[in-house]
Simulated scan of single mutants.
Amino acid sequence: MYIGEQLINPGAERLRLSAQLGVEQVVIDNRGTGLVTPGGLWDAGKLREYREWVESFGLKIDLFALDVGSILLDFLTDEDGARRQAEVLQKNIQIAADAGLTALKYNVQMVGITRTGLRPGRGGVQYSGFKLAAYTPEADRQHSYWGVGYPTNQDEGDAESALLCGQKMAREVPPVTEAAGWRAIEFLVSSLVPAAEKAGIRLACHPHDPAYPVGGLNGVEHVLGSIEGLRRFLRLSDSPVHGLNFCQGTVAEMAPEPHAYVIRAIEEFAPRIFMVHFRNIRGGYLDFAEVFPDEGDVDMNEAIKAYQRAGYAGILCPDHVPLSELDPNRERFMSFALGYTRGLLHAAGYRPRITTLAG
């Protein structure tokens, strides 16, 4: 296992910072990189050049984001349009392989990553949280994560990244029943996995965040909101390229006893985990806050041991750190999470590559 960072269109200084923090492998979101042509296809030459540019900082792209857009919602209302989108995604998978990439990540979120407010934390930070009893459409609009953004009272109408992700307010979409949700996901998996197998690209799926109550929220079901849902998802294909972006925080949000649930999920799914969002929460199912990794209800040291026992050997990325005006870009808090994770890995016997010092 090794530490890594998930970055959105990083500049040279940000990549230098990652390298200086001891990061050797990164996960890159493609938005803003200029790699996407007007028709949605990636520019193969630019993607290869981009990979080589990242590598010039001593970093390797571990995974690259495959934006599936609104294909899941479209499949339920415009199947022909969804199939045309699938053809573009299939071509992008091959382009990624031709550019020297080995793995892609995607998110099956149809509506925003639902949050209902900010809670006070240590030293005056704010924790993003979800509490079903406090849910209102206005709280959803103000505090949910849209696209790749953080919950900083974003205006849904101006959230370009949300549009790119295909995420909308739940009131804006038709009902997504459990059966409909599975139909859409089955279509996506059947469209992507054969192309990924042919290209030799692994696909890591991020589950629904957060788990919704039985019966859904605003008519939308989150079918990948439990271990049972993740198990069914993995059974959609036995291909070795079909796996998970295992968001540990999202999994913790699925249960009233998050620690035991996370350990159970790691033990079951480790062979199909291609990357980990190594984050923590306080609380549990339908009532939680996203906190620093050292202060949540999941024992992160025990989680590391569980990954180790299960044979996971991949990347651990910080994610969803708290908010503060003292760290508007969250670089300090991400650095703290990286150092904390590196310390846990050291305690478990992992050591980073030794860099030779000049002079």
Rank of each mutant, 00 (worst) to 15 (best):
E55I: 04
I93K: 00
P10R: 08
F187H: 10
L234N: 03
P151Y: 00
G157Y: 00
T136E: 03
Q308P: 05
T116I: 02
E79I: 12
Q126L: 15
Y312G: 04
G124R: 05
Q20P: 12
D29L: 13
A170R: 07
Y135N: 13
G34C: 08
Q85H: 01
T114P: 07
T136Y: 04
G4H: 10
G124W: 02
Q90H: 03
R279T: 13
D294L: 10
T114H: 07
V262K: 11
D319N: 13
F292I: 14
A159I: 10
C317A: 12
L101T: 09
W146V: 01
Y106C: 15
P256Y: 12
L21S: 04
I315L: 00
S18M: 09
A310Q: 11
Q154S: 01
H143A: 15
E160L: 15
R16F: 05
L357T: 11
R31I: 15
C317K: 09
R231D: 15
T250N: 01
R330H: 12
P240M: 11
R84A: 13
L118S: 09
G283W: 00
R264W: 10
A337T: 14
P352A: 03
Q94R: 15
G123S: 09
A260W: 00
E172N: 07
P174S: 10
E253H: 04
R232V: 09
L132S: 05
G147M: 03
G249K: 06
P352H: 01
T37R: 15
E302L: 11
P293Y: 10
T116Y: 00
R115T: 12
G147F: 01
F269Q: 11
G11E: 11
R14W: 09
A260G: 04
N218Q: 03
F292K: 15
K105C: 13
Y150P: 10
G81L: 10
T102S: 04
G149A: 15
A211M: 02
F64C: 07
A260L: 01
L230H: 04
Q308L: 09
T33N: 12
S335H: 12
T341C: 14
T102R: 05
F57W: 00
A86F: 04
W53C: 02
F233I: 01
K168F: 15
D67Q: 06
Y150T: 15
G58D: 00
C205K: 08
G123W: 05
G225N: 02
E186K: 06
A265R: 06
E55T: 02
A139C: 06
E302H: 06
